[in-house]
């Protein structure tokens, strides 16, 4: 598991609010689909295969906590 430096602040509340707003009015299934699309788009923006593998491993690592 990697500890990542914080790159969202000081705009973290703006981001979180935008994310919640994007889900506004969607069914739960539609929200999961939105999340899936968002992960894919963000992955494309990140691009680097090594970083992506590390992010996936870290996120997956919390599934056992």
């Amino acid at each position: 598991m990697t500890i990542y430096p914080d790159r969202l602040s000081p705009n973290q509340d703006d981001f979180y609010n935008q994310l919640m707003d994007a889900h506004d009015g969607l069914t739960e299934a539609e929200s999961h689909a939105l999340n899936a699309r968002l992960v894919l788009i963000m992955a494309n923006q990140i691009g680097d295969p090594g970083i992506l593998k590390d992010l996936i491993d870290t996120a997956r690592g919390y599934a056992h906590v």
Binding site: I3, Y4, P5, S9, H23, L26, E28, S31, Y62
Partner: peptide, 21 residues
């Protein structure tokens, strides 16, 4: 307000045990 908001909140809390962001 919704299950999705609750899901994001609960995962943010889970990550907050280690992740500064």
């Amino acid at each position: 307000k919704t299950p999705i908001e609750a899901l994001f909140r609960s995962e943010a809390l889970r990550l907050a045990h280690d992740q500064p962001f």
